[in-house]
């Protein structure tokens, strides 16, 4: 029973991060959410030093930075990534300086180690209710605005050209991300919360190319690594945040290896299934290069790795033969 609360907390944290992380990827706002995560950390550090309510202040910082970034990137001609990285450096510097200048008794508190490294004890019933509320609100939002969100997921530029308010939906997404981070920050620690937002979805993108499957497995992976990390931290007495982050990184690495292996096998099948199409091939992450000998020249064609064999082999338009000897 004592384990139930942390377990549920880890499960929900992983789920919501995997779910939101998918949209973050597809909307192309990864850097923005990275900055928001670190802004939340700065907020937590400042609240600790000044003695404010940490959760509320972290939430305020995360939300404020989401809005600020949304505003700045729409107003300024400077590239969004540059703004985010500038802000990220500034916020981290503020966080560290605040902690450095604060009295030594802050530095030795459990709370400080919680916001930096995370803690299982930070998972409380209130937090679980908060996470469930955020996840449920997001799901309701995603269902209501499905037509517009689908248009953005399918082709963001076209959606923008057709008058979908992409900026508004990106900002709404970042607000959800900011709120979730503010809650989860003290479970995984401020430096590692981003790994839960990034690694599960990055693994999902490698494991499947189909958006609907990616969307499904990303939260599942998120929950799994969060729970596994929690157990690892119990068993080996490790910091919970680092355990989760490490496991999510291992998952990412394994996903990468399996993607490369799958591509290799697919390529072997396609080369075999159509005689004469190629004698040798190399596999890239999602393209297969097939070399062929045509009379006395060598040509190569590239095909997407997922193309099924036989009937699905590249049609003339997908084939792009390049004459190596000519070029």
């Amino acid at each position: 029973m004592l384990l139930m609360i942390p377990l549920l907390g880890a499960l929900l944290s992983g789920f919501i991060c995997g779910m939101l992380g998918y949209y973050v990827q597809r909307y192309g706002v990864t850097t923005l959410s990275f900055t928001i995560a670190h802004s939340a950390l700065a907020g937590a550090a400042i609240s600790l030093v000044l003695g404010f309510n940490t959760t509320l202040f972290t939430l305020f910082f995360a939300v404020a930075s989401a809005l600020l970034i949304g505003y700045l990137t729409s107003k300024s001609p400077i590239r969004r990534e540059l703004i985010c990285m500038g802000l990220f450096s500034l916020l981290n510097a503020v966080a560290i300086l605040m902690l450095y200048m604060s009295s030594t008794n802050v530095l030795s508190t459990v709370q400080l180690s919680t916001i930096l490294w995370g803690s299982v004890l930070a998972i409380t019933c209130e937090k679980i209710i908060a996470i469930v509320t955020i996840a449920a609100t997001f799901l309701v939002y995603a269902v209501i605005f499905k037509p517009q969100i689908d248009a953005i997921l399918f082709d963001q530029k076209l959606a923008e050209a057709e008058g979908v308010n992409v900026k508004l939906h990106s900002t709404i997404l970042l607000l959800f991300v900011g709120s979730a981070i503010a809650i989860i920050l003290r479970i995984t620690g401020g430096f590692l919360v981003f790994s839960l937002l990034y690694n599960p979805v990055a693994s999902a993108l490698l494991l499947s190319k189909r958006a609907n499957i990616q969307q499904l497995i990303s939260p599942i992976l998120g929950s799994s690594v969060a729970i596994a990390g929690l157990f690892a931290s119990f068993m080996y007495n490790l910091p919970v945040g680092a355990s989760i982050a490490l496991l999510s990184s291992v998952t990412l690495l394994l996903s990468y290896v399996s993607r490369v292996t799958i591509n290799y096998m697919l390529a072997q099948r396609s080369v075999r299934s159509k005689e004469g199409i190629g004698e040798a091939f190399t596999v890239h992450l999602n393209r297969v290069l097939i070399y062929q000998n045509v009379s006395d020249t060598v040509r190569f064609i590239t095909v997407p790795a997922e193309l099924p064999t036989g009937t699905g082999l590249p049609s003339e338009t997908q084939r792009s033969p390049i004459n190596l000897l000519d070029s």
Partner: peptide
């Protein structure tokens, strides 16, 4: 679009009408 894009052609056309549509419209 790449071969794994899963939205059907009809759905893609329908998206053209979603600029300010919500699910109940």
């Amino acid at each position: 679009k790449p071969p794994y894009e899963h939205y059907t052609a009809k759905k893609v056309i329908e998206m053209g009408l979603s600029s300010n549509r919500v699910i109940t419209d």
